[in-house]
Design a protein around this nucleic acid. Structure first.
Lengths: 263, 263
DNA sequence: AACAAATGAGAGCACTGCTCTTGTTTCCCG
DNA sequence: CGGGAAACAAGAGCAGTGCTCTCATTTGTT
């Protein structure tokens, strides 16, 4: 599909932009997105002004509609961008834990990365986890990037369980297990949790997930102002207790046969 | 300060609206507020249109400014209204538990009331606990109504502790206690927690508070769609486990000397 | 009855999302 | 190389927004 005279298929494995126009289009699209993200830090998704974004990139408002059919489409692109960036940050931070058996360390690294990203990008965090934009329904394209964080967490919990570690104390009355059937199916569908799914573990994982994001939201949205004086310390206190509630145990102090702890 | 010729103070103990104008002003103010609340259920705080509200009450937009100096002032009034309504609902539900020693029952009643109110008023809930409106800073007048829910919860925990019940298991590593110094001060300042404040109990109360609102926000904002199939059941599972984590125990099965369980 | 305060209506300003039209640039293919 | 089609940027325009100002009317007080 280039000046190459071969009529055969075989598109180049790296489908980089060839024509000047496609190149410019990608670049301008990226410029619009970054300008919109900057605006988003101090404007909120519902009040994001497409005209202001257009002015920031030196265009007139109608020209932006060549790149995004509507403000909602721009929001969708921002949503995917932010979800992917958060997911990548968490995956990277969790993967950096050398001792893979240290599930508590991985748990802490993952959640600390979530909070770090949220504090660094409060506007994007509010877009992802704040109140939804009233007339806007997130399309299907956003759900896969949205699952990256919980997938990292799930893998940690599953790894811990397979190591015989994640055994949450059965506190609270026994309830119907079907309430979290969706979460169990979600995990099984992705190859995790191929053994029998212990409902209590799933519940505690969901609770940890909700508690962490609830804590970050409370911190960012100002509800902890009078109560928590050191949010950094408090967050670590919270994730430590959540790990304990899940039954995650520290890595064995016996260091027999650690598989290449270098790097 | 009235036609009463007495220069002495002693205003009437019930300062009801006397003149027709004051009466009309109160009524129209209330009409504007209720119209704004209805608009809020499908518009979001940032997109709340003052002109649309004015049209709903049959006025022109500029006339509304006789009652609220700005859209922010209207938002403040809505904030106070919603916080007070939620607080009253929770206080009432918790007070309806006859057996005051049943701290778990009171815990459940209070949190179920929070969720019930949130589901019944999603727009107001998003105003209170969703992303803050970008350019708007909630004034001091809103903080007191905002504390009513956590005050109810705090009293339950303190009552449980004085009955020797609230003893959370010391899970997780020991941390600096000063992170939650604000919360301890908040409780002591209101006469609660006059004894020595156990940091672990304060932390677990804060965590429970955050988890419940995090759960409700996740449910209302659509983050539990694929995972939790029965939100009602899941919510009860969560608050039961939170009570257990706090060390709240069910009321003693021995019913010796219950102090007037009537009403 | 007279005056002052409160109230409602309207016009107007600068802004918004979005559409449509107009002129220009870039691309592809013969 | 050159013509036609697509993509593009700019502008005008529409209906909406928060908010201010002016003006006429109503209400309360003296």
């Amino acid at each position: 599909m280039t000046p190459a005279d071969h009529p055969a298929p075989a598109p180049s494995p790296v489908p980089r932009a060839r024509t000047v126009r496609e190149r410019a289009r990608e670049q301008i699209t990226a410029e619009i997105l970054t300008a919109a993200r900057i605006r988003l830090t101090e404007s909120g998704p519902g009040e994001l002004s497409l005209r202001a974004v257009a002015r920031d990139v030196g265009m007139v408002s109608s020209a932006v509609y060549r790149y995004f059919a509507s403000r909602d489409e721009l929001l969708t692109a921002l949503l995917v961008l932010a979800y992917d960036e958060l997911g990548a940050a968490v995956e990277q931070a969790e993967a950096a834990v050398a001792d893979r058996r240290d599930v508590v360390g991985r748990w802490r690294a993952a959640w600390l990365a979530v909070r770090g990203w949220a504090l660094a990008h409060p506007g994007d965090y509010a877009l992802l986890y704040g109140s939804p934009v009233p007339g806007y329904a997130a399309p299907q394209a956003t759900v896969e990037p949205a699952t990256r964080v919980i997938l990292v967490i799930l893998r940690i919990v599953v790894d811990a369980k397979e190591a015989g570690s994640a055994t949450p104390a059965a506190r609270g009355a026994a309830h119907d297990t079907s309430a979290v059937a969706g979460a169990i199916g979600f995990a099984q569908q992705r190859g995790l949790m191929h053994t029998d799914a212990p409902t209590e573990l799933v519940v505690r994982t969901l609770m940890g997930w909700t508690t962490v994001f609830g804590t970050i939201s409370f911190e960012l949205f100002g509800h902890l102002v009078g109560s928590v004086s050191q949010p950094d310390d408090y967050f670590e206190i919270v994730i430590d207790r959540l790990a304990a509630d899940l039954g995650l145990t520290e890595a064995d102090p016996v260091r027999n046969g650690s598989p290449s702890p270098s790097r």
